[in-house]
Write a protein that binds this DNA or RNA. Sequence first.
DNA 1: CTGAAAGCGCTTACAG
DNA 2: CTGAAAGCGCTTACAG
Lengths: 349, 349
Amino acid sequence: MKQKKVSLSDIAEKLGVSKTLVSMVLNGKGDENGISKVTQERVLKLAQELNYKPNQFARSLRIGKSNTIGLIVSDISNPFYAKLARYVEDYCSLNQYNLIICNSDENADKEKKIIDTLLEKQVDGLIISSTIEDIEHLRKINNEQVSFVLVDRIYSSYPSHYVVVDNVFGAREATQYLFENGHRRIGCFTIAPAHISTQVERFTGYKEAFDTSLESFNDFYHKIIPRENMFKTIYNILKDWTSNKVMPTAIFSANNQITLALLEVCRELNIHVPSKLSIISFDDIDVFRFSNPPITAILQPIESIAKYAVETLLKIISKTKANEEITELYQVKLQTNLILRESVAKYNI
Amino acid sequence: MKQKKVSLSDIAEKLGVSKTLVSMVLNGKGDENGISKVTQERVLKLAQELNYKPNQFARSLRIGKSNTIGLIVSDISNPFYAKLARYVEDYCSLNQYNLIICNSDENADKEKKIIDTLLEKQVDGLIISSTIEDIEHLRKINNEQVSFVLVDRIYSSYPSHYVVVDNVFGAREATQYLFENGHRRIGCFTIAPAHISTQVERFTGYKEAFDTSLESFNDFYHKIIPRENMFKTIYNILKDWTSNKVMPTAIFSANNQITLALLEVCRELNIHVPSKLSIISFDDIDVFRFSNPPITAILQPIESIAKYAVETLLKIISKTKANEEITELYQVKLQTNLILRESVAKYNI
DNA sequence: CTGAAAGCGCTTACAG
DNA sequence: CTGAAAGCGCTTACAG
C-alpha cells in the first residue's frame, strides 16, 4: 500500500509553524524574510526526513507557470528528430525546464490535437517542427496563450520566431558538387507532403545549382515520394527511367528516409552505387557512415538547432511573463556542412 | 499580447449558470445529472466559441491524478530507445495518457534526480530502464507514491513488475549459430557498467552456448567495453589479440553501440568482415541492414515491449487507485529473433 | 434541474 | 521574525 504523500501543512503542523514559513524556507527565501537560522534548520531537516516533494501542480496553478515546454516533431524514432529531441531535452533540463515530446506523424489534425492537449497541460511554450499547412491555425495559437518557436520547418508567408538550417544553400552546394564531378542528368527526390518548407527549399537549392552551373533546368527529374510505399514508388521510378534509357547518373535525395529506401532499391535492382548511380543525401545519420558505400551527406548542426530553439523560446517566455512587448522576431538560420564520402563517382565528361 | 485564458467561471458567468453545471456538461456528465438539453447546448457552444481549454493542473490537483507517466531511458537518441519511446508514446496516447521522457545518461544520480522531479510532477506511474545499481533506492520508490514497471533491464534480486526480453536465449542462440558455422574462438563484448542485467544475461547466454556445444569455456575472450572511448578500447583489444596471434574468428557483441565501434575499428585495421572476422550483434538497428556487410543481428520485439509495459503499468495504476491489493507480480519475458544476414562466414573446420 | 461551498496544495501580499 | 487569509481553476458531495 502506498503511503500518503506529505504536504506543506504536514510539515507545518508537526513543527507548530505556519505553511507560509515552511514554504518560504523551502524556496530559499528564509533569509530574505528573516526566518531564524534555527527554524530554517528544523524545517529543512524534517522535509528531508519526510522525503517531502512539493506538488508541482499546486505550485504551477498558483504561480501560473509550469516550467514545462512541449516539443512536437513528426516522429521521434526518425534519427534526426531523436537527436534533436535529445539535445532539446538537455538544454531544457539545463534551464530547469521539463520537456514533453509528441509525435504528429505528419498529420495536421493530430498536430492540432497535440497542441490543444499541451495547452491544457499549461506548457509555457512550444517548439514545433510543424506539419500543418493551414497558417490560420498557427495564427490562432499565436493569439492564444503560448509562445512558440518553429524549428526545422517554417512558413515563408507567416512571420514567426524560428531556428532553421539554410536548406537552399545545403542543397545547392550538394548539387553543385555533383556537377563538379561531371554529372549532368541529376535527379531530385523530395518527400511528401510537398508543402513542407524543408522540401521546398531543398528543391530550390537543387534548381539553383543548375543556374550557377549554366545548365538548363526542367523538372523531369524531380519526384515527390509519398511516405507510404517509398520503396515501391522509387522502384517504379528507377525501372521507368532505365527502360526509357533516361536514367540519371546522380540523385540528390532531400530526406534521409528516402535515401534509405533508394539504397534498398538500388540493391534490389543491382544498380551499383556509385559506379552506376551517384547519391548524395540530406541529413547525416549513422547509417550513412556505415553503409555500402558510405553516403556523401549534408550534415545539419542538430545540437545548435536545439540550443538556439530552447534559448530563444525561454527568452520569449520570460519577456511575455514580464509583460514586455516582443517587438523583434528571433530568426536563426544555421549553416550545413557537406560530408564527403564515397557515394559520388566522377562521371566521365 | 497574449489574451487571458478562459476559465470555467468565465463561461458560467456569461451564461448566468454555476461552475458546477458547466463542469458537469463539459465532462459529459450533463445527462446523468439531468441538465436540460438546451442548457447543455448553450454551454458547449460557448466553450467552443471561447476556445475553452480546461486547466489540467487544477483538474489533476483536485482529482489527484495526472494522467501522465514518465519514461526513463539512458539515451533517447540511441535508436533502440528512440523506437521504444515512440511506441510507448503511441500506447500512452491510445489510453489518453501523456508521456514525459527523460535521459539518465547511465548515471545513477541523474536517474534519482529525474525520479524525484517526475514525482513532483505527480506522474501516475513510471516506466524505467534503470541504471541504478543500488536496489535500496528502488525499494524506496516502491514504498513511495508511484507504481512503476521496469523495462529492458531488471534486478534479479529485487522482485518487481517488468517487461523484458529473453536475453540469455537470444545470446545463446546467436553464439550457437557461430558454433554451427565452425567458429570455436568466439569473443564477447559487453558494455559497461557491468552490472546492467542485459549485459549480464547476454554474457550468460554466450557462456551457455559453450556448454551446449560441449566446448570448454574460459572468459579470456570476454571484454567489458567502457562507454567513453569505445573505439580506442576495441582498437587496442584487437591489436593486442592480433599481435599475440589469438585473434578470435568471431565476436558476439552484446550492444549495438559497441558493434558500431567494432565495425569502425575493423575498417581502420583492415580486418575484413566476415572473411577475417565474423560479427553478430544484439539489437537490430537500421545501420545493420545497410552496412557493409549487413550485420546478422538479434531483433528485439520493441513494439511488444512498449505495449506490455504501458498496459501493465496502467493496470497497476488503476488497481492502486481503486485501493485494490496488488498481489501478483506482472513479469513478461519476450522472445528475440535472430536475423540472418552476411556478417557471419563459415570457418573452415 | 441547478447552485453554494469546500478543498486539492501551493504562494504571496498583508498585517502585526 | 511569524501567521491568517485569499486565491490559482477545477470537481464533487450535498442541499434544495
